[in-house]
Design a protein around this nucleic acid. Structure first.
Lengths: 292, 292
DNA sequence: TATTTGTCTTTTATCCACAATAGACAGATC
DNA sequence: GATCTGTCTATTGTGGATAAAAGACAAATA
C-alpha cells in the first residue's frame, strides 16, 4: 500500500465530534480549516458520512441525520501516523530492551520488526539522529550511542545554558506580552494539580513541557527553541520509563516551578537566574539518578 | 540505476596514488584499511587494475606493471556522492537564486532539476532541516525560512555561547592533551598564510573551520560539537558567495586568531574569554554585513 | 462580489526492486 | 597460529510506482 490514510481517519474521527454538536455542517473550506486538512480530505469525509447515513449531503446542505455511535469511530491504532508508530517502537526498543551503547542498528531489521518499508525507518533514523543518540556509518549501519550518563550530562549542560539565557529574556518581556498570560494559566494549573497531587501527579509531565517550552520560546532563537525538542523527547520517554517516587518528585518540581514563576514575574534577572538554577539542578539530579 | 558506484570510483582514484608509490600492493584487508572501504570494494578495484594492465594479480601477489596515467583516474565529478551533489545544488539555489523567505520548496521539482530520485532529495531535506533554514509542513511542501538577518543573529548568539564555553574548557586542558599540539600546528599555518597573504588568503576558510572545530571539541559535548556543523556549512557557502574584501577580512581574522591562540595558551580564562569575544564580534559583523 | 462547490492536476508518503557495498565464514597460505 | 583469499549473504543507497492528500481553477451559488 502506497500511503496510509491516517490523515483521513484521524480527521474523520475529529469531524464526528463536530457533527455531534450541530444539526448541519459548515462549508467545505471551513471544515478544512477546523480539522486542519485539505478540501480533498474533507470531501472524502463527507462522502463517507453520507454512506454511513450520518448526514444527507447536497452541495451546501449537509444535514445531520443521526448522532455518531462509538463504533462509527475508527480505532485509534489506525489514526497514528507511521512516523509515530516507528518512534514508539524504536524508543521502546532502545530504552526497554538491552540497549548497550555501541550496539548496531539495522534499518532492514527494524523495518521488518515494525512491519513497514525501509524508507520510512530510514527517514525516521535521519530525523532522530539530531538527538545525538545514534550515529550513521555511511554505507553501513547506525550505531547506538546509548542513553548514558555522559549523554545526560551533555544534554543538561546545554539545557542549562539555554534556559538561563531564555529566563533572562523572559524577565525583560514587556508587560503586555502574551507570554505573561500563558504564564498565569500555567501557574494556575500548577496550583490545581498540587491541590490534588495524589490523583493528578501524572499530569506533571505534560505541564512541565508546556512551562519550559514557554520559557525557551522567549529567547526568540530558533536553535534554542528547537533544542527543546531533544529535552522534550528525552524527558517524555524518561517519565514513562522511570516511575519510582514519581509523586514525590513531581510535587517537588511543581513547587520549584512556582518559585521560578514567581521569580520571573518579579522582572528581577538575579532572582530569576537563581530560581532557574535551583530547579535545573534538581531536574538534573532526577535525570541522573535514573541512569544506571 | 540503483546505486552510484561513487565509493568505488573515489577509492579507485585514491588507490591509484598508493599504486604510484610502490612496486607491489599490500593485502586486501590492509588496502581496505588504508582506503576506508570494504574488501568487496578493494577486490573490485584490484580487478579493474588488472583489466587495465596496471598490475598482475594472483592471490597475494599484486605486482605493479606500470605507473598510472592521468586518464586512468575517474573524473572528479563522478566521485562525489549524491548527497554532496544535492547539497551543492540546493545551496546554490537558495543562496544565489531569488531565495525569498516563505518560498515553497518542492521535492519533486528539486529532484527533477537535479536529475535524481525524490527519495534522495527528501532525505537531504530532512537532514538539512536541522540547520533551521527550512521547515516542513506535513503532507505538504517545505518552507524556506531564508538566510535572513534574524537567522544570522540567532546563529551567532548560540555560537557565541558555545564557543565561550568551549574556550573556557580549552584553557583547562592538561598540558599533555593532544589539542595543544594541534593548536600549534594550526598556529604555524596561520603564520605561513599571513606571510604570503596576497596569494594564499583563500586558504583561510578551511583553516578557520579547523581552528574553531578544535576549540568546540574541547567542550566534550556532542551538542556543542554537532552545532558546529551548522556554523560550518553557513560560513562555507557564505565564503563562496561573498568575496568582497576577502583578502582584507581574512587577514584581520588571521590576526585575531593568533591573539586568540595566544590567549588560550596562557591558560588564563579571563584572557581567553576576552580574545574569543573580540574575534566573535568581528566574525558576526562580517557575516551581517553580507546580508542585505 | 465573495464564497462555495465540482473537477482536475500535482505533490507527498510509502512500498518495492536492484545495484553497490559491507561483512561473515571456511579453506588456503604464510 | 595468524592472516589472507574466495565465496557467499545481508544491508544500504537510490530510482520508480502508486494511493493519499494537497491544492488550483472555473463554474455555480448566495
Amino acid at each position: 500500500m502506497a500511503k496510509q490514510n491516517t490523515v483521513f481517519k484521524d480527521a474523520y474521527n475529529r469531524c464526528l465530534k463536530v457533527l455531534a454538536e450541530t444539526s448541519s455542517l459548515p462549508s467545505e473550506p471551513e471544515l478544512g480549516q477546523v480539522l486542519g486538512v485539505s478540501r480533498t480530505t474533507v470531501r472524502a469525509i463527507l462522502g463517507r458520512f453520507e454512506e454511513e447515513k450520518l448526514i444527507t449531503w447536497d452541495k451546501r446542505k449537509k444535514i445531520v441525520l443521526r448522532q455518531p455511535q462509538p463504533d462509527d469511530y475508527f480505532p485509534t491504532e489506525e489514526t497514528d501516523s507511521l512516523a509515530e508508530i516507528i518512534e514508539r517502537s524504536f524508543m521502546r526498543r532502545i530504552l526497554a530492551g538491552g540497549a548497550e551503547p555501541g550496539m548496531q542498528i539495522n534499518e532492514l531489521e527494524l523495518a521488518r520488526e515494525i512491519g513497514t518499508g525501509t524508507t520510512s525507518v530510514r527517514e525516521f533514523l535521519i530525523r532522530f539522529s539530531r538527538f545525538g543518540l545514534i550515529e550513521k556509518r555511511p554505507n553501513s549501519h547506525w550505531i547506538l550511542k546509548g542513553f548514558t550518563r555522559e549523554f545526560a550530562l551533555e544534554l543538561t549542560e546545554v539545557r542549562e545554558m539555554f534556559e538561563l539565557r531564555s529566563a533572562a529574556s523572559f524577565v525583560a518581556l514587556p508587560d503586555n506580552h502574551s507570554a505573561w498570560q500563558e504564564l498565569s494559566r500555567i501557574e494556575a494549573v500548577h496550583h490545581e494539580i498540587l491541590a490534588d497531587i495524589d490523583n493528578r501527579y501524572t499530569e506533571f509531565s505534560e505541564l512541565d513541557e508546556r512551562f519550559h517550552l514557554l520559557v525557551h520560546k522567549s529567547s526568540s532563537n530558533r536553535f534554542i527553541v528547537d533544542f527543546y525538542d531533544i529535552i522534550s523527547i528525552v524527558f517524555h520517554y524518561h517519565y514513562q520509563w522511570n516511575k519510582t517516587n514519581a509523586r514525590q518528585r513531581n510535587a517537588r518540581a511543581l513547587e520549584e516551578h512556582l518559585a521560578y514563576i514567581e521569580a520571573l514575574r518579579s522582572h528581577d534577572p538575579k532572582r530569576a537566574e537563581e530560581a532557574c538554577r535551583r530547579h535545573l539542578r534538581s531536574a538534573r539530579e532526577t535525570l541522573l539518578q535514573s541512569i544506571p
